[in-house]
C-alpha cells in the first residue's frame, strides 16, 4: 500500500528523518512511537506531501505522493488544527469535506450517526465555529473528519492527546472497529493505547527507525522498558 524508499529529510544539514525502507501493507494498522523530535510528524508530513524530502520517495498505492495529487482521493488525515476550517461549524466542516469526495448531505449525516456517543452532544447541533471549540473537541472533529469520504489510508497524529478519558476509550473503539481493509497510521505517546489499537509498532528515535514489531502480549512491556531510560 505504502512504500517508503531511502527517504531523508534535513533542515540546514540537520538530518531529522532517515528511513531507508518501510513497507506498509494494505489493511495494516501501524503505530508510530517515539520521543519528541523522533520524526513522527515529519514522516506523516512527507506522506501527505506537506513537506519535500531531500531524497528518496514515498509511493502510496504505487503513486509517488510528491508527483501527483491522486493520493488525496483515498487518504484522510488529521495532524493538527491546520487541518480544520476554523470558520465553519463542525457540521459544515463535515459536509464540505464530504462534498470534496462526492458525498452529499444525507450521506454525511448518516455517516455521522455512528459517532453520536463520541461527540457527546458537544459537536453536532452546537452553533459554534470550530475556532471557538475546546482543544479536545477540535481534535474530535479533526479525527472524524479524517474518516469522511471513506478513505483507504487514514493518518492520525496523536489522536488521543487532549481527549478526556471516556473519549479516549471511545476513539480506541472507533479505530478498532474500522473495516479490516483500511490502512491506518497513528502516532501516540500513550504506549498502552497504541498497543491496543495497532497490529504493528514502529519506533523512531532521532529520525532513525529502531524497532519494527508485530504487536503481542509482550509488546507493551518491551516498549516500556525501551523508553524507561
Amino acid at each position: 500500500m505504502i512504500s517508503i524508499n531511502n527517504i531523508q529529510k534535513a533542515y540546514q544539514g540537520n538530518v531529522v528523518l532517515n528511513v531507508p525502507s518501510l513497507e506498509i501493507k494494505a489493511g495494516e494498522s501501524i503505530g508510530l512511537v517515539g520521543n519528541n523530535g523522533a520524526g513522527k510528524t515529519t514522516l506523516f508530513s512527507l506522506l501527505l506531501d506537506l513537506i519535500r524530502a531531500n531524497s528518496g520517495e514515498i509511493n502510496s498505492k504505487g503513486l509517488d505522493v510528491a508527483k501527483t495529487e491522486e493520493w488525496k482521493k483515498f487518504t484522510g488525515a488529521y495532524l493538527d488544527e491546520g487541518f480544520l476550517l476554523e470558520f465553519l461549524t463542525p457540521i459544515e466542516y463535515f459536509e464540505f469535506t464530504g462534498r470534496l469526495y462526492g458525498k452529499n448531505k444525507s450521506d454525511i449525516h448518516e455517516f455521522l450517526q455512528q459517532f453520536t456517543d463520541f461527540f457527546n452532544d458537544e459537536i453536532l447541533g452546537n452553533k459554534k465555529y470550530i475556532r471557538d471549540l475546546s482543544k479536545g473537541n477540535q481534535k474530535k472533529v479533526g479525527a472524524i473528519g479524517a474518516l469522511v469520504g471513506d478513505p483507504e489510508i487514514i493518518i492520525l497524529d496523536e489522536p488521543f492527546a487532549n481527549l478526556d478519558p471516556t473519549s479516549q476509550i471511545r476513539l480506541k473503539t472507533i479505530i478498532n472497529n474500522l473495516p479490516d481493509e483500511k490502512t491506518v497510521l497513528i502516532s501516540s505517546h500513550d504506549l498502552s493505547h497504541i498497543t491496543e489499537v495497532c497490529e504493528r509498532i514502529v519506533v523512531l528515535e532521532k529520525g532513525e527507525l529502531v524497532k519494527d514489531i508485530q504487536t503481542s502480549e509482550a509488546t507493551l512491556k518491551e516498549l516500556e522498558s525501551y523508553f524507561a531510560v
Binding site: 506531501d49 495529487e69 488525496k72 491546520g82
Partner: peptide
Amino acid sequence: SMHFDYILTRNITG
C-alpha cells in the same frame, strides 16, 4: 494560513 494543510491534503487540486 490557518488551515492551509487542509487545502493541501484534501481532495482539492491546485
